[in-house]
Design a protein around this nucleic acid. Structure first.
Length: 428
DNA sequence: TCTGGGGTCCTAGGACCC
DNA sequence: TCTGGGGTCCTAGGACCC
């Protein structure tokens, strides 16, 4: 097998730069929901030492101390509508190179290049050129016989400009592959995080090469079967298949940090209603039913003047459902049991659990088929209206258009490619 | 003052079955 | 000397990913 992993460079920041040529070589960071943490950095921002996942207010403080001001670093709120649309464009372009594609995340995909007439590295360069020309986004390509090695190759291509964006491990001498793996710390291998890295280091495994050479049975004894598979994949033995179609989700979550702390049950109810509505939409998009819904509310874990408080509760449904109204009723029932007056809640969320396909449903003896059909027709209409006129056009009346707790987004760019009224206009 | 939002898989242990 | 021997299902918690 010959697999390629194509990954966009600094994806969110690059999407912003495409529509803002003035930001091209500048330090750009994109912030998480609520403008909380740094989740993407342009090359220049990385050079400034801005760290991934760092709370933005801390970054700002640090930069100020270094005499670096907002004229040097542009911070933008997340614009998911834009990123999702750009992602779709990239994925469609890459799908033209091979019929076998697995979209792994918003900014990367695996492609099966097995048996194609040209050398893989040549195809890789054509992919880069095409995506850059058609979308303006730079990508790197890693090529190897397994997913883990393709990932690793991509990592190398990003690190060292000498690869010119494409690293094909299969075209390399065995000794050169070993050299590359020897230089990579084991925690940078896909599937090995900080915790496992510590345990592996205790076994004398420091580099990707060490893990590749370690006896798989020992790895399994000391860690788990997942890490054993990673070690085998590093040897070129494929343990992970290409998954061309995304399986149905097993749980659907919608949770948010609030823009301002919430203390009243009314506002929490409004938020939980909004989050449940969104989760139910996602559930219907996969033709699913939920058997239970979990509700979570929590106070800030960061404040020093109050002990953090988090509570959650699972509410089973009498009948599996995808009806926003039933799900909201259950969630709010759970919320009333959790709520404690006087606490400053900063985050809440719901999880739809025990998902099954609507088509495989076992109707209850007591079910009313008529009511069921009416519910389905109503939800289908709701979804169609919201798809056509924009999310939230039709919603439960309890949810106001711009609640006080809504997320902060101080500087979101326009939805250039998905809203007629926000299209970029060239001034020539 | 300000700290994201989703997901997945694996394992261990308990309850229960015959 | 010996105290039955398998199984399945569920859940919580830990680890990982982007």
């Amino acid at each position: 097998m010959t697999l390629a992993l194509v990954d966009c460079n600094s994806f969110y920041a690059a999407c912003e730069q495409v529509f803002r040529p003035d930001l091209q070589d500048r330090a750009v960071v994109v912030l998480s929901n609520n403008d909380g943490c740094v989740v993407a950095r342009s090359k220049a921002a990385k050079t400034l030492g801005i760290r991934m996942g760092e709370p933005w207010f801390q970054t700002q403080r640090r930069l100020r101390e270094q005499g670096i001001g907002p004229e040097t670093v542009t911070a933008l709120s997340s614009n998911y509508a834009l990123y999702a649309d750009m992602s779709n464009r990239v994925m469609r372009l890459l799908a033209r190179f091979t019929p076998r594609q697995e979209v792994y995340s918003i900014d990367e995909c695996f492609l099966d290049l097995t048996g194609l007439p040209e050398p893989a590295a040549v195809i890789g360069q054509r992919m880069r050129a095409k995506v850059l020309r058609w979308t303006g986004l730079p990508v790197c390509v890693g090529i190897g016989p397994t997913k883990t090695l393709a990932k690793l190759a991509n990592h190398l291509a990003k690190q060292d400009p000498a690869w010119q964006g494409v690293c094909d491990l299969e075209a390399l001498e065995e000794t050169r592959v070993d050299q590359q793996l020897a230089q990579m710390p084991v925690n940078e291998v896909w599937g090995v995080g900080a915790r496992l890295a510590v345990r592996l280091q205790a076994l004398g495994i420091q580099s990707a090469l060490d893990l590749r050479r370690a006896p798989p049975r020992l790895i399994r004894q000391q860690t788990s079967v997942s890490v054993e598979r990673t070690a085998l994949e590093l040897r070129g033995i494929a343990c992970l298949d290409l998954e061309e179609s995304a399986p149905d989700k097993q749980q659907i979550r919608c949770s948010r940090s609030f823009g301002a702390a919430v203390t009243s049950l009314e506002e929490l109810t409004e938020a939980i209603t909004a989050f449940t509505s969104r989760a139910a939409e996602k559930l219907r998009a996969q033709q699913g039913l939920a058997h239970a819904i979990a509700v979570e509310i929590r106070t800030s874990p960061f404040r020093v003047d109050a002990t953090p408080d988090a509570a959650s509760r699972v509410v089973p449904l009498a009948e599996p459902s995808a009806d926003t109204r039933s799900l909201v009723a259950a969630a709010c029932q759970g919320l009333r049991r959790l709520y404690r007056p006087g606490l400053r809640y900063t985050q809440a969320g719901v999880i739809l659990m025990g998902l099954s396909r609507a088509s495989e449903r076992q109707p209850s003896l007591l079910a009313e088929p008529q009511a069921d059909r009416r519910s389905q027709a109503l939800m289908a209409t709701l979804d169609q209206i919201n798809y056509r006129f924009g999310r939230g056009t039709l919603r439960l009346a309890r949810v106001r258009p711009a609640p006080r707790w809504a997320r902060r987004e101080a500087s979101r760019s326009p939805r250039y490619s998905t809203r007629w009224d926000e299209l970029p206009i060239a001034h020539c």
